[in-house]
Simulated scan of single mutants.
Amino acid sequence: MKKRIPAIVLAIFCLLMNTCLAMSKESKADLDNELAQMVGDTGTKVPGLGVIAFKDGKEVYSSFQGSAIIDSQNPQKNRPFTRESRFRAASVSKMFTVFTIMQLAEQGKLNLDDDVSKYLGFTLRNPNYPNTPITVRMLASHQSSLRDGKIYSIPPQLGLQEFFRKDGKFYEDGAHFAPAGQEPGKFFAYSNLNYGLLGTIIEKVTGERFDQYQKSHILKQLDIKA
């Protein structure tokens, strides 16, 4: 069975920080070896990885290890992980979403401490905290008191209220709200749903589809083709 495996983007900040400040041949070899321990059947058990470190705007280290494609039935189709291999963006997209939010905040088109209800077109409150507004900042920092539940991605023809109304198709008996004791703005819990809401807010504020805005206002300037 052919299997195209997305390699994982590894943010090895602590590991790279000290090593890259004084990158000797020995330290490069040590870092190569530490990364190698993450590939395959050991460590984090990723099939492949790519790491590039920059200092003062210049590339000071790179390493590409393991496999980008593993085909157990046709090994001749196997491919190593290289500088040209592509990653699935996955939650790295959250970082770019925040780039856009901050860009719009700088332009005065939204305020990080605005009640998100202002942009969504309906009042969004955690029923356990009905008097506490949920803000843009809370969504971005995973302190909104919203939770993924079993389902947090729905067809585009359905509205977001399907998550939050008691008669909503994806209400899940309130699973998208944190329980009492986890107040908005005071409790951190990672939730993908936060970023679906931020994407919707970006579309509301800009009048552009989220992916098209990203291409024209963020990715193009960074010379990223995505």
Rank of each mutant, 00 (worst) to 15 (best):
K94R: 14
I224T: 06
L35G: 07
I101G: 03
I8C: 09
V9P: 13
Q73V: 06
A105Q: 07
P6H: 14
L112T: 00
K118H: 12
K55M: 15
K225Y: 12
F64N: 07
F177Q: 01
E162D: 10
Y213P: 02
D115V: 00
D173C: 07
V39F: 15
A90G: 09
D173F: 08
T82K: 14
Y152M: 06
V205A: 07
Q76T: 06
A189W: 01
A53G: 13
Q73A: 14
E34H: 10
S145N: 12
Y129S: 01
F99G: 05
K215W: 00
K45P: 00
E203A: 09
D113M: 10
G168H: 05
R165H: 08
S91G: 11
P80Q: 11
A189K: 11
S191P: 02
L139E: 03
A178L: 00
D223T: 01
S191H: 03
P6C: 11
N18K: 14
V136A: 06
F170E: 08
N78T: 12
A175C: 05
V60Q: 11
G108D: 04
P6Q: 14
D173T: 00
V92P: 01
G207R: 12
P80N: 12
Q73K: 15
A189E: 11
G196D: 01
S91R: 07
V51I: 15
D173L: 07
Y171Q: 06
L120Y: 03
M23V: 06
A226E: 10
A105G: 05
L10I: 05
F87V: 10
N128C: 07
L35V: 03
P6M: 14
G207K: 11
Q65H: 12
E162V: 02
F188D: 00
G43K: 08
V98A: 13
T123N: 10
Q161W: 00
F13V: 02
E208T: 01
E172R: 03
L139A: 04
L158D: 08
A89K: 09
R83A: 15
E34P: 01
F122C: 13
S72E: 10
R4E: 05
N194P: 14
G159H: 00
I12P: 04
R165C: 04
G40F: 12
P47H: 05
Q76R: 10
Q214H: 09
R4G: 04
L193V: 10
